[in-house]
């Protein structure tokens, strides 16, 4: 199954808007670029900053390694997960509408992120 097909598994989540996979350097590997009003192609580098800041903060604060960030805005939710096994490292994003099913989205994000491992 290709990366695109695995991202398509998110489409069942209520409130789904779009999703993407990014390299740790911030380049989009695969994703829905045609999301109305959202410029996902520039998200990669910005997301890197956010995930790195989150990891630094949790490590220095003594509460583990952050691998997941959820950003709530007035337009919806952006969920971002960092997968880093040492030799494989990528970021997965998922956009939801404000009334989307967050719990299901988080579960799917975990399973899809793991399923993507075999693609790298």
């Amino acid at each position: 199954m290709a990366i695109k097909d695995k991202l398509a598994m998110f489409e069942d989540v209520k409130g789904y808007i779009g999703s993407g996979v990014f390299s740790p350097e911030g380049e989009m590997i695969e994703g829905t670029t045609e999301i109305s009003g959202i410029q996902q192609e520039i998200l990669g580098s910005l997301l890197n900053d956010v995930l790195l800041a989150a990891r630094e903060m949790t490590e220095k604060g003594g509460f583990g390694k952050a691998d997941f960030v959820q950003i709530n805005s007035d337009m919806g939710l952006l969920l971002a997960k960092c997968v880093n096994t040492g030799d494989k490292h990528y970021h997965v994003t998922l956009f939801l509408k404000p009334d989307g099913n967050v719990a299901m989205a988080k579960m799917k994000l975990k399973s899809v992120s793991e399923a993507l491992l075999e693609e790298f």
């Binding site: 949790t58 997941f68 805005s73």
Partner: peptide, 21 residues
């Protein structure tokens, strides 16, 4: 900054999950 630049509205709050909290 990230959500502003991608045109995804104004930030309400952020949550960060780590393995301890």
């Amino acid at each position: 900054e990230a959500i502003n630049k991608i045109g995804f509205g104004l930030l309400n709050f952020v949550s960060i999950n780590s393995d301890k909290g």
